[in-house]
Simulated scan of single mutants.
Amino acid sequence: MNDKVAIVTGSGSGLGKAIASRFALEGATVVVADLNESTTADTVREIKDAGGKASGCKVDVTQQKDVGRLMADVAHAHGRVDILVNNAGITHYRDFSSTSGADWDAVLNLDLKGVFFCAQAAAPYMRRQQHGKIVNISSSLGTGTTPHVGSLSPGASSAYASAKAAVIQLTKTLARELGPSGVNVNCVAPGFFLTPLTGAVRSPEEVEEHIRVRKSMAVLNRAGKTEELAHAVLFLASEEASFITGHTLYVDGGRTDRM
């Protein structure tokens, strides 16, 4: 990835941080794009301390103008936009019977609309180059349904699952749209990974039970390591995947609810 310019949204922490760090290790110039300025600065500092090249940018991917500014700034600073990883997202579980329109919109705006806005804004630069890589991050919940761990019912994940399923279909649509311009658009559907989000909305007891159940649902019987997800994204963003587009790669340890 030497001399490649890669934008990774939501890379201040968690899976996005692992992806950004892996890209930098391979020689890419990484733009850490996140709404949280503090975690963005931390990621940039860690990449630089490891000898990598990175810069940070505060961006709200749900705002079309904000995303347009991000792409213009990156293109102006580096002369190109080679790679976009649409990783920014949230989970927002609510009981099915009490999920509000605001709950639904919060998830769909970030997890789906944000992916569309970022791809739309990056496309003109990639088309001009006649080359580019877009990797969207979906979820195993976008490929099937699972029991919700804890007191909530499966419908509690309806907004999140719907958004992540739509990301898979959006990936196929964008692959058709941008393929003639030499742009590859692919998707990664992670299974269970331990990230800061795991404990963000759960008690310690709920986290322990969540980990136990999710590990048991994978034939490898463990949680994924963030670097394992980063390896898969790196492959799809590299020239080694130059003849792959419109594809969704499951990185889930062999989830039995999908197999």
Rank of each mutant, 00 (worst) to 15 (best):
H148N: 14
G51Y: 05
G114N: 11
Y125N: 04
A77F: 00
L152Q: 12
G10S: 01
R202S: 02
E37N: 10
G155E: 03
S98Q: 12
N136Y: 09
S11N: 02
A232L: 04
G254M: 04
I90R: 14
A106K: 15
S13K: 13
F193M: 04
N221Y: 01
S98A: 09
D3I: 01
E209W: 03
V135C: 07
K58T: 12
F243A: 11
A88M: 13
P154H: 04
G79C: 05
V219N: 07
L152K: 15
A6Q: 06
K65F: 01
G114V: 08
R222V: 00
G51V: 13
L112E: 10
M259R: 12
A165E: 05
C187Y: 06
K4W: 01
G253K: 11
P196V: 02
Q130R: 15
P154M: 09
D73M: 06
G68Y: 09
T248E: 12
S153T: 15
V5F: 00
E26Q: 14
S139M: 06
A165Q: 09
F192G: 11
G179I: 07
L112D: 08
G14R: 09
A232K: 08
G56N: 08
I90E: 08
D111Q: 06
H78K: 12
A33T: 12
R255H: 14
D34M: 02
L194A: 09
R128P: 04
K17P: 00
S13V: 02
G12A: 03
A161S: 15
H92Q: 12
R22F: 03
A161R: 10
K164V: 02
H78C: 10
N36E: 05
L234W: 13
G224I: 01
H131A: 12
T226Q: 12
A175N: 07
L108R: 03
L236Y: 04
N86V: 08
F193T: 01
S138N: 07
R255G: 07
G132T: 03
E209L: 14
I7F: 06
M126E: 04
N86T: 11
V185K: 07
V85Q: 10
S138A: 15
A54S: 14
G142S: 09
D42V: 13
A223L: 14
L174N: 04
G253S: 09
A102S: 14
G68V: 01
I83D: 02
S203L: 10
V107C: 11
A121Q: 13
V59P: 05
D49G: 15
R176D: 05
Y250F: 14
D42W: 00
E26G: 14
L197N: 03
I47W: 03
N184I: 08
E206M: 06
V135Y: 03
